[in-house]
Amino acid sequence: MSTRIELLAKNRKFQICLAIVLAIVAFGIIGPFFTRDPLEYAGGIYEPPSSEFLLGTDMAGRDVFAQLCVGVRDSLFVGVIAGSLALGIAILMGGVLSYKKGMIDEGANLVTNIFLVLPVLVILIVIAALLEGRSLITVGILIALFSWPWMARNIRSQILSLRERKFVDLARISGKSDFTIVTKEILPNMLAYVFLLFIMATGWAVVTESSISMIGLGPTTGFTLGNMLRLAIEWGALGRGAWWYFMPPGLVIVLFTGTLIILTSVIDDVLNPKVRTE
């Protein structure tokens, strides 16, 4: 394992991607301590970027840069909650249930396939519209409930091949329960892969949160990047040419998720010996 991490650490692409992701995370965690209150009416209407307001002001004279800091923090919070919860569901549906052959596996696979083709955003919008108060955690849970299927599918295909290995047979003979075999024997063998899935799920959740926030169904408490985009659209930042209001939140999302995608493909390249020889 240590050699793998060394391999990764030496890779230049990996270093750059990791630096970008960590910088965004740090920006969200540390940033809000150093900026003014994002809801304070500090300047004029739609002031362009200046030394006082790094990214200008919005329609009520509030600091866009401060909003961006808080937005990154809250969006990442939703993303991490949704990502980890979705991973848990995916491991249960794709891992533990798929390990049992026959009916249970087929049933779990069927449910996964149904959730996979459903238009997730439409369902999320209908549910969110029926919920009146939505905290960051509620929205995270909601996103997790509908974003696990593709992870479950990937985990299942891995489990199906690992299931036939000798060490799993050995564990089975020694009388361990199925749950213990999956969590203690099989999952550690695909830890890197599970980690990749978690990264991608987090990125996906950030995008989804911004999407449902954009039409006004995101968290009612907290201030996410999606909320910023919604305000920008609703208050006509586009027509007034206030690019500093709608560009940065989207750019941060693209930078974050795009880098995560490159990061996962780099990790995959380095850790997968088949591709490495290419």
């Binding site: 995008v207 985009l229 659209i233 690019w243 989207g250 693209v254 995560l260």
Partner: peptide, 29 residues
Amino acid sequence: SVYLSSAPYYWFGLILAYIFAVNLRWFPI
């Protein structure tokens, strides 16, 4: 294009609208 594939599509729409509809006025907004 791979990098952009993770972008929220509607944000991409906003950028296009800003460039082609608000600034250049080639297309309706």
